[in-house]
Structure formats: structure tokens, C-alpha cells
Simulated scan of single mutants.
Amino acid sequence: MSELTDQIKAAGDYIRKHWQEAPVAGVILGSGLGNLTKEIEQSIEISYRDIPHFPESTVEGHSGKLILGYMQGKPIVAMAGRFHYYEGFSMKQVTFPVRVMKELGIHTLFISNAAGGMNHQFKVGDLMVIRDHINLQPEHPLRGRNENTLGPRFPDMSEPYSKALIQAAHEIAAANDISLHTGVYVGVQGPTFETRAEYKYMHIIGGDAVGMSTVPEVIVAAHAGLKVFAMSVITDIGIREEENVITHEEVLEAANAAEPKLTLIFSELIRQL
């Protein structure tokens, strides 16, 4: 085995000592979106610092713990707090938890994030289901020698986001009178928010929303053969010409306000697994 597979196994073995159930789904929660964990029943929490080879989140709004339990009667594992390349982690560290969740048994990965809107139809607090992405991050999580036991050298990315789950999400939203957009997410390095010219550029090349996460995890999930559903909470609108100063505090506030709708959709999708 390689060093990476050894580390994945060590982390998985440690977690299984505390929770023996095999989760069917993993959930990664973005900035200001950690309250979904309150819906997890019979849960146990494990601090990232206690899990072998896990990094520790340094960002406000990311609590930094793994939560294992049941949602809608289904065993799941949730990350309250994720890792970002801009924090100084390598891409292998950023995506390591996805590998570990796969090791634990998940077959579906749910991801949320806070994102800046670049579509004129969007407003702050809207939800956008990600149907595709554009990767503008400066490093690739699969760069280097491929570990064939984890996935193929050249994974297919023609459908990184499950069309079936996207359709189910729209049906759930319609049944609960929730407005839901679908669009393309642009992944950038950060940590600066984008300039107005950058917002315009990313909109021109096909982006509807932009953020500093998600894409690396989705790439590794695709490499591992996992189904993925991802959703952005639009926490600011960067495409407007008028003054639009963005702060992290405002991003967290907008994410918290939209969270109940996101939680309902995630919960119902997990129920249907």
C-alpha cells in the first residue's frame, strides 16, 4: 500500500473504533452552514485534531469536527467545517476527508458552500444547485502518481454532479415552495473575494457563482466513484456595478438565513437514498 492509502486506513480505523455503522452518505458543510448537524440523531462527535492525518480547519464558521449519526433513519457522516487550499493545506489534505468517508462506506456525497453570485437573476439568500463546475484553482488534487486502488488515472468528469439527485432536489423544492436555481460553480483559490473585473470574466466564461471550495472535493469524489450533490447559498452578488463591499461576516449572516431551506432539501434527499 502507498503512504496515502495507509493514512486513509488509519483514519478510518480510528473512526470505526467510535462508531461501527457504515454510513451511506457523507456531508460537507460550508461557511455558516453547520446547523444541519443539529438534525443528526444519535450522533457522536470526533474532533478533527483527534483523527490520524486529518488537518484542522482555521476558518471562522467552520467548527472542525466529524459528526456520525442518523438523518431520516440513514447512517451518515458529516463534516462540520472543511479545509481550503488557501489555508495552506495541500490539495491532498483538502480532499483527504473525502477519501476517508469513502473508506467508511459512503456512496453519495453532499456538499454545501457559500458563494458569490454572478447571474443577474440571483439575489442574496438564493439557493443554487451546482450542475457543473469550472476549475480555476492553481493545483489539482489528483496531481502526482495515481493510486489505482482509489480510482483511475484519468477519471471521467462528464457528469460530476448526479443528474438524478439534481432532479430529485427540484421536486423537493417545488413541493415545499422553495425557489431553486441551477448553475455552474467556478472554483478559485482565495482567500480574497473577487474583483469586479474577475466577476465579469468568470461570468463571461460560463459561471453563475464563485467560491473557494467544493471543486477539489468533487474531483476526488468522482475519482472514487461517488455520486455527488452540491448546493451553493448565494451570499453576495458580485456582478453588480454599484458599491458592493463584501465581508466574511455578511457571508455567514446570509448563509445562516438560507440554511433551513438547504437543510430541508439535503434531509429529504438523504431520506430517498
Rank of each mutant, 00 (worst) to 15 (best):
residue 45 E to F: 08
residue 37 T to H: 06
residue 143 R to P: 01
residue 33 L to W: 10
residue 188 V to W: 00
residue 116 G to A: 08
residue 87 E to Y: 06
residue 98 V to Y: 05
residue 112 S to T: 15
residue 120 H to R: 13
residue 263 T to G: 05
residue 112 S to H: 00
residue 60 E to N: 02
residue 8 I to A: 09
residue 196 R to M: 11
residue 113 N to A: 05
residue 180 L to R: 07
residue 193 F to C: 01
residue 240 R to L: 13
residue 135 N to K: 09
residue 101 M to A: 02
residue 198 E to T: 11
residue 178 I to C: 00
residue 236 D to R: 04
residue 129 V to D: 07
residue 189 Q to Y: 04
residue 168 A to E: 14
residue 54 F to R: 11
residue 152 P to T: 04
residue 230 A to S: 12
residue 79 M to V: 05
residue 199 Y to W: 05
residue 128 M to N: 11
residue 197 A to P: 02
residue 98 V to D: 03
residue 47 S to N: 14
residue 23 P to V: 09
residue 1 M to S: 13
residue 113 N to K: 03
residue 184 V to C: 03
residue 16 R to V: 03
residue 80 A to D: 10
residue 89 F to G: 00
residue 180 L to W: 04
residue 230 A to Y: 00
residue 91 M to H: 05
residue 24 V to K: 14
residue 80 A to H: 14
residue 75 P to L: 05
residue 209 A to Q: 11
residue 143 R to Y: 09
residue 32 G to C: 07
residue 268 E to W: 03
residue 148 N to L: 15
residue 73 G to A: 00
residue 208 D to G: 10
residue 252 L to T: 02
residue 225 G to S: 10
residue 160 P to E: 11
residue 9 K to A: 14
residue 147 E to N: 13
residue 237 I to W: 09
residue 247 T to R: 07
residue 57 S to T: 11
residue 47 S to G: 12
residue 137 Q to Y: 06
residue 271 R to A: 15
residue 75 P to H: 02
residue 143 R to F: 13
residue 205 I to F: 07
residue 90 S to W: 00
residue 89 F to I: 01
residue 167 Q to C: 03
residue 184 V to M: 03
residue 224 A to K: 13
residue 4 L to S: 08
residue 7 Q to A: 10
residue 139 E to L: 12
residue 115 A to W: 01
residue 47 S to E: 14
residue 40 I to F: 07
residue 232 S to W: 00
residue 260 P to W: 10
residue 37 T to W: 03
residue 147 E to Q: 08
residue 140 H to N: 14
residue 238 G to A: 15
residue 228 V to T: 14
residue 228 V to M: 09
residue 168 A to I: 02
residue 186 V to E: 01
residue 257 A to M: 09
residue 67 I to K: 03
residue 172 I to G: 01
residue 231 M to W: 00
residue 176 N to R: 09
residue 31 S to H: 06
residue 236 D to F: 02
residue 205 I to A: 09
residue 121 Q to D: 15
residue 158 S to P: 04
residue 86 Y to W: 02
residue 120 H to I: 09
residue 101 M to Q: 04
residue 191 P to L: 04
residue 224 A to R: 15
residue 196 R to A: 12
residue 50 D to R: 12
residue 51 I to W: 05
residue 188 V to T: 12
residue 82 R to C: 04
residue 157 M to N: 07
residue 270 I to H: 12
residue 259 E to Y: 09
residue 118 M to Y: 10
residue 232 S to A: 12
residue 184 V to R: 01
residue 210 V to D: 04
residue 194 E to D: 07
residue 105 G to C: 11
residue 140 H to L: 03
residue 209 A to S: 14
residue 42 Q to K: 15
residue 258 A to F: 09
residue 3 E to D: 13
residue 251 V to R: 01
residue 201 Y to L: 15
residue 203 H to D: 07
residue 18 H to C: 08
residue 184 V to G: 01
residue 233 V to D: 05
residue 14 Y to V: 14
residue 201 Y to T: 13
residue 21 E to G: 08
residue 267 S to Y: 08
residue 102 K to N: 10
residue 177 D to E: 14
residue 133 H to T: 06
residue 82 R to K: 07
residue 141 P to K: 09
residue 254 A to L: 01
residue 59 V to E: 01
residue 51 I to F: 06
residue 3 E to F: 06
residue 32 G to N: 04
residue 46 I to Q: 07
residue 146 N to L: 00
residue 87 E to K: 06
residue 150 L to D: 03
residue 63 S to T: 14
residue 210 V to Y: 10
residue 119 N to S: 02
residue 211 G to K: 10
residue 242 E to L: 14
